[in-house]
Amino acid sequence: MKKKIVLGILFILPVVVYLFFASGVNNFGRLPILTENVMDVSQMDPARQLKGKITVLGFFGTDIGAMQGNAFNLNQKIYKRFGEFNDFQMVMVVPKGKQEQVEELKAELGKLSNVDKWYFAYGSEAEIKSLFSSLDSNIELDNQLSTPYVFIIDKDLKLRGRTDDEDEGTKYGFDTSSVAELNNKMVDDVKIILAEYRLALKKNNADRIK
């Protein structure tokens, strides 16, 4: 009798596990698209581009020193975890003329990790506002053209986020002043979009072989 129970468990358990993960793939396999046709930063700064990369997009504004804590949180919780992926980048938008402050921030971040994929895009006030407006989110820039929130932009210039967040309903961005939010929400969402593109790449490669 005991042998039958053990054999039954050994047979049923893998089926249950498979169904659980299959359900997870269906429910969580894609990160929802919240906004189509986000403006590319290349329109204001030709040295930078969003298209073709999975981007964490932020707005650091005129007082970059005031955003240093946010940058450290983002660096420790997101960049150090995902920065090695070829298709991943960080792009922070700042006003023109702030290059010296940017270099100071990068030097501080460089003490904790490499900063190879920490990029900064420069624009006028009107260009920065236009880019931010293209996100079509429920978040606002402050009077210094900054926000603690960062956004996930996919390779096709679409804003990705959550449509059923337990706290906000529709979640457009992630608060970099909250380590808990980065740990408990943003890490998961970046994982999902990276997995989504890896699965798509594997499928395309398999289709070519057929």
Rank of each mutant, 00 (worst) to 15 (best):
V17T: 13
D63V: 03
S124T: 15
G169A: 10
S130L: 08
F59L: 05
Y122M: 02
D167E: 08
K2G: 12
D165M: 09
F28P: 05
L7W: 05
F132E: 01
I33T: 13
D189K: 10
L57I: 03
I128Q: 01
K171Y: 08
Q99P: 00
I54V: 11
F59H: 01
K106T: 12
T62E: 14
D167L: 13
S124Q: 13
F132Q: 02
E127W: 00
G97Y: 14
K98D: 00
G58H: 02
Y149Q: 11
E125H: 02
S134F: 03
T170G: 02
T170S: 05
S178T: 07
L19I: 12
Y122A: 06
M1I: 03
T55A: 12
K106G: 02
E168F: 15
L194A: 14
V56P: 01
F21V: 09
E196V: 11
V25K: 10
E127R: 05
Y122V: 09
F60P: 01
M44S: 11
I12H: 07
Q43G: 02
F88G: 14
I153T: 07
N73A: 08
E196K: 13
K158C: 10
L50F: 10
K106Y: 03
I152A: 12
K77P: 00
K117R: 15
M90V: 14
T170D: 04
V94Q: 01
S42N: 14
W118H: 10
E168S: 13
E166W: 15
V25Q: 09
Q89V: 04
A47S: 14
S178F: 06
S146Q: 04
P32C: 07
E104R: 08
I193L: 11
I193A: 14
K80A: 05
F132G: 01
P14S: 15
K53N: 10
K2S: 02
